[in-house]
Simulated assay, not measured.
Amino acid sequence: MTAFFAAEPEEAQALKEALGATASLEAPFPLYQGEGVLVAETGVGKVAAAMAVAHVLTRFAPKESFFLGVAGALDPALKALDLLLAERAVQWDVDLTPFGRAPGETALGVRFFPSDPGLLARAEAAARALGFPYRLGVVATGDRFLADPEEAGRIRALHGADAVEMEGAAALMVAYRFRHPMALLRVVTDGAGEGAALDFQAFLGEAARRLGLLARALAYTEKG
Rank of each mutant, 00 (worst) to 15 (best):
A123Y: 00
M1E: 05
Q91I: 08
E194M: 07
L38F: 14
V39K: 00
G34L: 03
A175C: 10
A125T: 08
A54F: 10
R209W: 14
L84G: 00
G34Y: 03
E206M: 09
L184S: 06
A3H: 09
I155E: 01
A52H: 07
L184F: 11
E151M: 14
L198Y: 04
A197C: 05
E124N: 06
T221G: 11
A192Y: 02
P9M: 07
A86Q: 02
Q91W: 00
H180L: 15
Q201S: 05
L204M: 05
L68V: 03
A77E: 09
P9H: 09
Y32T: 03
Q91H: 15
G193T: 04
V110S: 05
T141E: 01
D116N: 10
Q33M: 08
E10H: 08
A171F: 05
S65M: 10
F4K: 03
A80E: 11
L213G: 10
F178M: 14
R186N: 01
T58W: 13
W92H: 15
V56L: 13
Y32V: 01
E124S: 02
M173L: 11
P117Q: 06
F66W: 12
V39F: 07
R144H: 14
A73H: 01
E167G: 02
L136D: 06
G43E: 10
A140R: 05
G153H: 10
T221Y: 07
P149C: 05
G205L: 07
E167Q: 06
F200W: 09
E150T: 09
P9T: 07
E194I: 13
L130I: 13
E64T: 08
F113L: 11
Y220D: 08
A207T: 12
L38D: 06
A48G: 12
L81P: 09
L68Y: 02
V187H: 12
R128P: 06
F145G: 03
F203C: 06
M51I: 12
E222L: 14
G137D: 00
L74W: 03
V94G: 03
L57W: 13
Y220C: 12
R111H: 04
D116F: 12
T2Y: 12
L68E: 06
G100D: 10
G43S: 13
E26R: 15
G137A: 00
T141Y: 00
P114Y: 00
